[in-house]
């Protein structure tokens, strides 16, 4: 069993028009331990109102990515990872953000970002999330969200890893099976990928993307990440959301 993983992050026109760089970040890949291959996907969205949200997003992803790899190398079984361990990963990332903020004479909240993660392999999976954006997995012919995006009362509010009560905002879910398809994305894609009236994932968004990933030859001759990037920058996508957009796709196959 192995994973095909693709990820792309693009700057939304609302930032690009102001000459700002994007505030999203993602880290995704797979790691082989003994006979199992594990998928690790992390995405984070730095708050638009902050100067360093993008850096916060990067620190959150990189710190937790290393922690997950260390954890799997010690014990290559996801079912042994407790909620407490997930809280430690997130706390370590928040500490790394706080340390850099302090070093630069800034406040932790200047680095505010959402944080979503998925780990899958050896017949198990683990998901966690603070704030908006979503993780979607295939369920038969349908697609379902793991957690619904957590928004505050208003359309421009959400929760961040830098909040005081970040552990109360942290959602964790363990699954006794490994999904065949996993997608993680930031809120820039939320209105295209999720139906808010029905409160469910929009299958028409995910099916063609996973089909394309599935059909992509593993030879490396096609530029799948480039195609994904061009898709995220497509006019009809930008017309629906001027925010930064990040998408991670992972497909599990035999062999």
């Amino acid at each position: 069993m192995s994973w095909k993983v693709a990820a792309s992050s693009v700057t939304g026109s609302s930032h690009a028009n102001r000459g700002e760089s994007g505030q999203d970040f993602c880290r995704a890949g797979s790691i082989r331990i003994a006979d199992d291959e594990f998928f690790i996907g992390l995405v984070a969205d730095g708050a638009g109102s902050t100067a360093n949200g993008g850096r916060g997003a990067e620190l959150a992803c990189e710190t937790t990515y290393s922690a997950i790899i260390d954890c799997l190398r010690q014990d290559g079984d996801i079912s042994h990872i407790t909620d407490e361990v997930v809280r430690q990963w997130v706390t370590q990332s928040r500490d790394a953000i706080a340390a850099e903020a302090e070093g630069n004479g800034r406040k932790v909240r200047d680095y505010a970002c959402t944080f979503l993660g998925a780990v899958a392999g050896n017949g198990h999976a683990l998901f966690f999330q603070i704030g908006d954006g979503a993780i979607v997995v295939r369920d038969g012919e349908d697609y379902q969200t793991i957690f619904w995006p957590e928004q505050g009362e208003y359309a421009n509010t959400t929760y961040f890893i830098t909040d005081e009560a970040y552990l109360e905002r942290l959602n964790v879910l363990h699954a006794g099976s490994s999904p065949e398809e996993v997608a993680l994305f930031t809120d820039g894609l939320q209105n295209l990928a999720l139906s808010f009236a029905q409160k469910k994932a929009h299958a028409g968004f995910f099916q063609p993307l996973f089909l394309a990933l599935r059909n992509d030859p593993a030879s490396g001759f096609t530029d799948f990440p480039g195609q994904l990037r061009r898709f995220l920058l497509r006019d009809d996508v930008s017309a629906r959301s001027d925010d930064d957009k990040t998408l991670v796709l992972a497909f599990r196959h035999q062999g």
């Binding site: 209105n191 295209l192 990928a193 999720l194 139906s195 808010f196 929009h202 028409g204 968004f205 099916q207 063609p208 993307l209 089909l211 394309a212 059909n215 992509d216 799948f224 195609q227 994904l228 898709f231 009809d236 996508v237 629906r240």
Partner: peptide
């Protein structure tokens, strides 16, 4: 490869 993607309304 991604021409068939539709968006939620």
């Amino acid at each position: 490869p991604m021409a068939a993607v539709t968006f939620a309304e």
